[in-house]
Design a protein around this nucleic acid. Structure first.
Lengths: 351, 351
DNA sequence: TCAATACCTGTAACCGGTCACAGGCTCCTG
DNA sequence: CAGGAGCCTGTGACCGGTTACAGGTATTGA
């Protein structure tokens, strides 16, 4: 009769189950608690037990179920990289990519997983806050936060560990951050222009609700004041970091103060936009107008002429962000870290 | 005596526990199974039960523990976006960012989490394979895979659901993919040049171990043959998609066949590199040499002159990749999807 | 010789969900 | 009025780990 039973598809096919810690234990002839100890490097396990467990693991091809582990430990082993800029700005900015690369590397080194979240629209923001507050991740890395963003207060209230890239205005005491020394960077850029003999220096700023936007402008102020130059409101125009906004700002500047002899743009992208407008207006760079950018992004070396700029050490920043976040998760009190910048001189404003 | 007991810090502070499904059940006066049913929209739950569970949820601020859910269901709810290019190529390419944005959006719409993995170095690749095979993710989106990559065979052997961006040469039957119609796109680009009267058309190709590299070159062949033009080996030079490789290829081309009157580059980045070299060589674009790129990346509109290019519809591609991956996870057999391209005419080769 | 100690191991509870199953209730039908 | 169908709910097993605790053995010290 048994011959009539149709052949059952062997469960060893595609649907075969992954070995569990119990399988390994049976294979190694120990209890599953011992396997767990070996897995986690606990002390007081006999050398033989360690060896036989190791062998059993490689024989069975066992890998721990991450979800079971997370459930038991309460740690997810993953970190969210959260972008909140309107999406059209996000990916134009080469800084973003570099930062992302650095963070991915730093997390990978620590065996942490990088979860990328983009919260541009209001619905996305709501969903994101729920997700991040819901224990899916151990911490959040925040890119270019704007101080008025309600998302910030919600995350703070939910007590999610956060490290921001750039000081978060108004949250200095509760959100840790890592940032370039924007103020001194801006100052060094403008002092470079002054040293070259420029007297009528304009600036295209970043958004004034971001620390980078404010600080780089402050550096501009610092340099002018330190050298006895007056600050002309007509020489200060605000941009949003993007190339397009830089071009628009440059048009405004040429209109408001046509006699300018230098421009300090708070981002390379804005500087690139400004260069284009200057060329269209027939102003020679650097002959008639010198231009300095900020970031030393990939863009800077390929503009025409190549940009003198302030190097934003994003590799350092990303590494520090991850290091700081692990500290914050471990219970460290909020802290701000600043990394130094350096001036990179190219043809748009030679030495 | 009780007065001598020191005040214990209230456990309702930062360390308070999140409510569980049992808490909600107690609050709502039902069993936890009923709460689970409401959570998952199961049928046959009384309206009153639904209502009181809903209220209890909002009263307690309950959110489900994702790890517990994953453990019970065996689904992680997350998808890996895997990059395997050497890192220096990765982030120069604007396509990458656009694709990433699109994928993030498409996954978010389906309540799936995007895990970003970068596997450039051998160690990273090993770790990545282990991770992906270990059940952390439900599926993998693969960007610009090279056919010889051992990572591919390992993932295939581990039976991880995969969808690639671009056909994977040699794996067509086992790895699903989504790609632009590169061959017809390349053909249309070259036919545009022929229609403009060009006779000596060169091409800068992508890597010949990627489908995009091969197919775009094939399109070049197709067009030349269809119009009775001969294929000169000296007019075909290989690049790696990057701007720098485009510049190098252009120098080779000017050297090998100085009489060329048009260049079709298989990426906008390479086209941009070629433009720069042509300008340095004093060749007028489009007067003496016409240039067409591929991708219609952000770059294309901002080169000097702006690039005529083949639009690579990455928004469609990303959406299709995610759609296809969910199908593959659900057990669908491998499948390749092609999305059409369109020619975008700009100043580097006007109509 | 006996107890204390160090070292090693196993049992069982627990993390917080999902889901199969059993069972109760109501209503309809023969 | 018995019994089946449809609707709703609760119990308990289970997913695969971690870890507190208890217990066993070998070594040491009094």
């Amino acid at each position: 009769m048994t011959a009539m039973i149709p052949t059952v598809p062997t469960p060893s096919g595609p649907g075969r189950k992954r070995p569990t810690i119990r399988d390994v234990a049976r294979e190694a002839g120990v209890s599953y608690a011992t396997v767990s100890r070996v897995l986690n490097g606990r002390e007081w396990v006999s050398p033989e037990a360690v060896r036989s467990v190791r062998e059993a693991i490689s024989r069975t091809g066992y890998t721990a179920n991450p979800h079971a582990r997370s459930l038991a430990t309460g740690k997810s082993g993953s970190i969210a990289f959260l972008l909140t800029e309107p999406q059209h700005l996000l990916f134009e900015d080469p800084n973003f990519s570099v930062l992302l690369r650095g963070v991915a590397q730093a997390l990978s080194d620590r065996e942490l997983t990088l979860i990328l979240m983009i919260a541009s629209t209001p619905e996305e923001r709501t969903r994101t806050v729920a997700y991040l507050s819901g224990g899916h991740v151990d911490g959040v890395l925040l890119v270019s936060p704007h101080s008025g963003d309600p998302l910030l207060s919600q995350l703070v209230r939910a007590e999610v560990p956060i490290v921001a890239c750039g000081r978060v205005l108004g949250y200095e005491q509760v959100i840790s951050s890592v940032m370039a020394d924007d103020r001194n960077g801006g100052r060094s850029a403008v002092e470079h222009l002054i040293a070259a003999g420029c007297q009528r220096i304009a600036t295209i700023t970043g958004p004034q609700d971001t620390a980078g936007g404010v600080d780089r402008l402050q550096g501009y102020h610092d340099a002018l004041i330190a050298h006895g130059l007056t600050i002309e409101p007509g020489r200060i125009v605000h941009g949003d970091w993007s190339r397009e906004s830089g071009a628009a700002a440059m048009r405004t500047l040429l209109d408001q103060s046509p006699d300018l002899d230098a421009v300090f743009a708070a981002s390379d992208a804005m500087a690139a936009g400004a260069l284009r407008v200057l060329r269209e207006a027939g102003r020679d760079v650097p002959g008639e107008v010198r231009v300095v950018g900020f970031d030393d992004s990939g863009l800077a070396a390929t503009t025409e002429p190549p940009l003198t700029t302030v190097r934003h050490p994003l590799d350092r920043v990303s590494e520090e962000m991850v290091r700081l976040l692990t500290d914050v998760i471990a219970g460290r009190t909020p802290l701000s870290i600043t990394v130094p910048t350096t001036l990179v001189v190219r043809a748009s404003s030679p030495a």
